[in-house]
């Protein structure tokens, strides 16, 4: 049981690392930053996985994302001077696997459904789905950015001098 949990945590981190490197390439991230992005993403996503697992800590997605983003932010700031890149170059790709893309387009799909069913129960259900998905998406992004920016402001001397 515990063995499979560790394997799952490892796999979660591994796939998050692969996702981070691939998404980093879309934004022309310097190649020297790939390893730092991968390690940061793996640590952040694995932390969120552990926090959210129902049989472990069962934390809801917003606070779990904030804590995971804090880990990502700390690692991003610490790695930044060694890869000679601004901290966000390191932690943005690491945050991308946590961006609530599905919530975002589910919210917009629900909004379109509101237009398709202008009155009655259909509208209420669609509007409920829009509000639920939209607010969840908004709060996750807020939690992510707040979590990742706290280390940037606490460790200003490192974060803003990394490229010096």
């Amino acid at each position: 049981m515990s063995g499979s949990i560790f394997i799952n945590i490892f796999l979660d981190g591994l796939f998050a690392a692969i996702a981070a490197i691939g998404f980093a390439s879309i934004s022309s991230t310097p190649r020297r930053a790939y390893v730092a992005c991968a390690v940061t993403a793996a640590a952040g996503h694995a932390v969120r996985y552990v926090l959210m697992r129902p049989d472990l800590l069962a934390v809801s997605i917003v606070p779990a994302t904030a804590i995971a983003a804090l880990v990502v932010g700390v690692l991003g700031v610490l790695f930044a001077p060694s890869i000679k890149c601004p901290a966000e170059v390191c932690f943005f790709p690491a945050l991308l696997p946590m961006v609530p893309g599905m919530y975002a387009y589910h919210a917009l799909q629900a909004l379109a459904m509101c237009l398709a069913s202008p009155g009655g129960a259909g509208f209420q259900a669609a509007f409920g789905a829009f509000a639920s998905n939209g607010l969840t998406c908004l709060f996750i992004v807020l939690a992510m950015v707040l979590g990742a920016n706290v280390p940037v402001f606490l460790l200003k001397n490192i974060a803003f001098r990394a490229t010096r």
Binding site: L11, D12, F15, A16, I18, A19, A20, I21, G22, F23, S25, I26, S28, T29, H45, P97, M102
Partner: peptide
Amino acid sequence: PPTPAVEVVLMASVANAAFCRLF
């Protein structure tokens, strides 16, 4: 120049497949 287009396509495709596994 930015990262070559072919490299981006290949890496992003693998990344999205990994993302699918995360879900």
